[in-house]
């Protein structure tokens, strides 16, 4: 379960992480892309935080949609439409909700990943965001189904996400600018998969703090 306050907290914690890891994400992107992922994500989430006070009284779906809309106009790189679509789809999945059940949380994640797949026309195994996101969501589902708490499920999800990040070091990029590098992209971790792993880390920290 997640309250609106926790959703807002998640957005703030994740924004802090994007600021904190700005250089690291940029360095990963410099190795195989255009070297702006950390700059773009931190700029986008800085704008999200500036906008947040104007929407924090609204329903969870409006808040998530507003985050998405802000990202698509402020991130600048491919992560703008990708993360933006994810937040908008997650919002649409929980329309009118003041509070999210575990099923709602899973539905929101499912819709978010579906949105990213649709927008990026990608599948798992192409060295993208999906390589940490899909295993993380699968871990949440498996853990909740096994009767674990949301905090424990998110601990499992974060671990699965970082395993996914490690896996991206072993594969060739076939999407985005990293695909121009072909085999030279092997050995480098995907910046998008990395920034997505931080999202599950943020969600886990918020759940831990709330004692869920």
């Amino acid at each position: 379960m997640a309250t609106k306050a926790e959703v807002l907290d998640f957005i703030r914690v994740y924004a802090d992480k994007m600021a904190e890891h700005r250089q690291e994400l940029t360095d990963f992107d410099q190795a195989i892309g255009d070297g702006d992922h950390g700059i773009n994500m931190s700029r986008g989430f800085k704008a999200v935080i500036e906008k947040l006070p104007t929407v924090e009284d609204k329903n969870i779906d409006d808040i998530l949609k507003s985050v998405g809309m802000t990202l698509v106009s402020t991130v600048g790189g491919a992560s703008g439409p990708l993360y933006g679509t994810a937040f908008m789809k997650a919002g649409a999945a929980v329309k009118g909700k003041e509070e999210l059940s575990n099923e709602d949380v899973i539905l929101a994640f499912d819709e978010a990943v579906g949105g990213i797949q649709f927008r990026g026309k990608a599948v798992q195994g192409e060295k993208t965001i999906l390589d940490s996101m899909i295993p993380a969501i699968n871990a949440i589902k498996a853990s909740i189904a096994a009767g674990k708490s949301m905090t424990d499920a998110l601990v499992d999800a974060e671990k699965a996400a970082w395993d996914g990040v490690e896996y991206t070091k072993t594969i060739i990029a076939t999407k985005g600018r990293a695909s121009y590098l072909g085999e030279r992209s092997i050995g480098h971790q995907d910046p998008g998969a990395t920034s997505m792993a931080y999202a599950f880390q943020a969600a886990k920290e918020v759940a831990e703090k709330a004692g869920k």
């Binding site: 702006d36 773009n40 698509v72 106009s73 402020t74 600048g76 790189g77 439409p81 933006g84």
Partner: peptide, 13 residues
């Protein structure tokens, strides 16, 4: 580019 003239693409633009 972006609203501030930086490199990137902007949906609203």
């Amino acid at each position: 580019g972006m609203e501030d003239g930086g490199i990137g693409t902007d949906v609203s633009k």
